[in-house]
Write a protein that binds this DNA or RNA. Structure first.
Length: 298
DNA sequence: ATACCGACCTGTCAGC
DNA sequence: TGCTGACAGGTCGGTA
């Protein structure tokens, strides 16, 4: 489900709702396949941390956290109460401690979602993480198929490939000119480009008038240039529409996207091409469905 | 090194 | 109605 525009929409929505909040407590469902880091580490890192920002990197959502280092303060070592409200000078001010900036990384997989709700809201089925926030609301990670992943990163998290919206046109052309895979598969390879998924790959190839089975290295300069423009166009339009809701994708407020109404080939097999009226074809390329117009795409 | 395929999960829908 | 199989936005590891 979530490709770059959906992840971007979720990240922006979550950021707007909870930036600056402190995480008071964390609950994890204990389904191990959802965790890429040990549960203890995730809970220990999140609890007490402040959320400085929430942003998208590739198809990942990165929570920039800030927390004190685990070093005990001089006051606490003597048995004094840190943060004693009667104390005229705070422990923080007299003994400023180094800050840590770990990151919480969330990948939504196929069916993952992040929602911000009031704590009293019923916890829906397939909820795998609940972060109780200082405001009394909760950030919940729900994921029926459990393809999503949670992890802690100690260093700046980086995508494995180029950011589709930032990559230079010449670099884009170079990357795909080196691949012998079908162009559709190459677009889905996150080590090359991080963020394009099945829907937007089909839509970009249609707009670039390139067939999905074409080997990437056989694309001409002109075709690579068109594809570069098409990828950026469909991703930007997808973001502007708040993502594509085919089945169950929702943003942080539980609202559906709108880009499904702008799809020209994805999910339209058998229907008339919007340009030439030829029926859209559906084929399978390395296990994923691909949709295209045999007349418009060469 | 590269490219394909099944596996990982649960839910839904079409067809019998 | 109920069963079965195909399929779903993603990624990984194994294999050829």
């Amino acid at each position: 489900m979530p490709e770059l525009p959906e992840v971007e929409t979720v990240a922006r929505g979550v950021a707007r709702l909870i930036r600056g909040e402190r995480i008071e407590s964390v609950w994890l469902s204990g389904k191990p396949q959802s965790l890429k880091s040990p549960a203890r580490l995730i809970v220990r890192t999140l609890e007490g941390a402040a959320i400085k920002d929430v942003r998208r990197v590739g198809k990942h959502i990165v929570f920039d956290l800030e927390r004190d280092t685990g070093e005990p303060s001089p006051h606490r070592a003597k048995g004094g109460l840190a943060g004693d409200p009667k104390s005229p000078v705070s422990t923080q001010a007299r003994f400023p401690r180094a800050k840590m900036h770990p990151q919480w990384i969330v990948h939504l997989g196929m069916t993952g979602s992040l929602v911000v709700v009031e704590a009293q809201r019923e916890v829906e089925k397939h909820t795998h993480a609940v972060l109780r926030l200082g405001s009394g609301r909760e950030l919940r990670f729900v994921d029926p198929r459990r393809f999503g992943k949670l992890a802690i990163a100690r260093e700046e998290f980086r995508a494995k490939g180029h950011e589709p919206l930032d990559v230079d046109a010449d670099v884009f052309a170079e990357v795909f000119h080196r691949s012998k895979a079908p162009i559709k598969s190459a677009l889905l390879n996150q080590k090359l480009l991080s963020g394009v998924g099945n829907i937007y790959a089909d839509e970009a190839l249609f707009r670039a008038e390139v067939r999905p089975r074409r080997r990437a290295h056989t694309l001409t300069r002109d075709e690579l240039k068109r594809l570069y423009g098409a990828v950026q166009q469909v991703l930007n339009e997808g973001i502007a529409a708040g993502g594509t809701t085919v089945n169950d994708y929702m943003n942080a407020l539980g609202e559906a996207g709108m880009f499904q109404f702008d799809l020209r080939v994805y999910g339209r097999d058998g229907e008339a091409c919007l340009v030439c009226r030829t029926p859209i074809k559906r084929i399978v390329i390395s296990g994923r469905s691909a949709h295209y117009c045999a007349k418009c795409q060469k």
